[in-house]
């Protein structure tokens, strides 16, 4: 599914923000990436999406090496990988249904979609996605009038409508309050297992990673410092990961995962 080897990612001539020897993620895995701010978590996800190219190394996603393949191959993989953002990035003024249909843009007829004409198959997929995220009562409501948690649900619906094999989520719950955060992560894991997809998410709070992921990868200064089953992650490991940088360490809180 995912295979990274000897990659080095840098912006400009700066020293690399991400330098990984080797990382493999198997199909169907549910992985959380944690670590202090600036550890390279987002860069890793953008690398897997093909938005960022490594200076060197191999980034193989769904059988395509994103580090050196041409435009058309990257585009083909692009559609099979969905990315969910912290800020939702929904289209303002469009309804929940229209936003979900945006996830079909890679599948549907290119020219017809410009007139807002989608195939019955697209509409069916969008409705199924909306039912899955539980927003049937708000299908025609404008997405920017919804609460943060509901907006993130629309973003998940858009990702589901895309029919991805790999779902990436970049801090999906960092702008939500704890109740909504648990709710959205619950939804993400349900969607992932229902569609037999692989889920890789970055999380700011280690206790959410322990609660919702099977495998946790700890990044610090662009390197993997911890990689193992979520159950094996101890408070000592977290101390080592976040170090003395207490500002980034969010204390363990059991109630959020309950």
């Amino acid at each position: 599914m995912i295979q990274l080897e000897h990659i080095e990612v840098a912006y400009g001539r700066e020293r690399p923000v991400l330098a990984l020897e080797s990382l493999r993620i198997a199909p169907g895995e549910r992985v959380a990436i944690i670590g202090p701010s600036g550890a390279g978590k987002s860069t890793l996800l953008r690398c897997l999406k093909g938005f960022v190219r490594p200076r060197r190394g191999k980034v193989e996603v769904l059988g395509v090496n994103l580090a050196c393949s041409g435009q058309s191959a990257r585009r083909a993989v692009n559609q099979r990988v969905a990315l969910i953002y912290q800020q939702f990035r929904l289209v303002p003024r469009l309804s929940v249904l229209e936003n979900t249909l945006c996830g079909r843009l890679g599948h549907t007829h290119r020219w017809r979609s410009l007139f807002g004409w989608f195939t019955p198959e697209d509409t069916r997929a969008a409705w199924a996605a909306i039912i899955e995220v539980g927003l049937t009562k708000k299908v025609h409501q404008r997405a920017d009038t919804l609460s943060g948690g509901e907006q993130q649900r629309v973003a998940v619906a858009r990702a589901v409508a895309q029919e991805p094999e790999l779902i990436l989520a970049d801090e999906p719950v960092s702008s939500l309050d704890p109740a909504w955060a648990a709710d959205v992560l619950e939804l993400l894991t349900t969607v992932q297992s229902h569609h037999h997809a692989t889920l890789v998410m970055t999380l700011h709070q280690p206790e959410l990673a322990r609660g919702f992921a099977q495998r946790v990868i700890g990044l610090r200064a662009g390197h993997i410092v911890w990689d193992g089953p979520a159950g094996d992650l101890t408070d000592d490991n977290l101390q080592a990961l976040y170090g003395s940088d207490q500002s980034n360490y969010v204390p363990f809180r059991h109630d959020a995962t309950a």
Partner: peptide, 18 residues
């Protein structure tokens, strides 16, 4: 929003439209 729809597989015209 442009990047998000790019990531959903939209082409240039679709990104302009949506």
């Amino acid at each position: 929003v442009w990047e998000a729809l790019d990531g959903a597989g939209a082409n240039w015209f679709q990104k302009v439209r949506f």
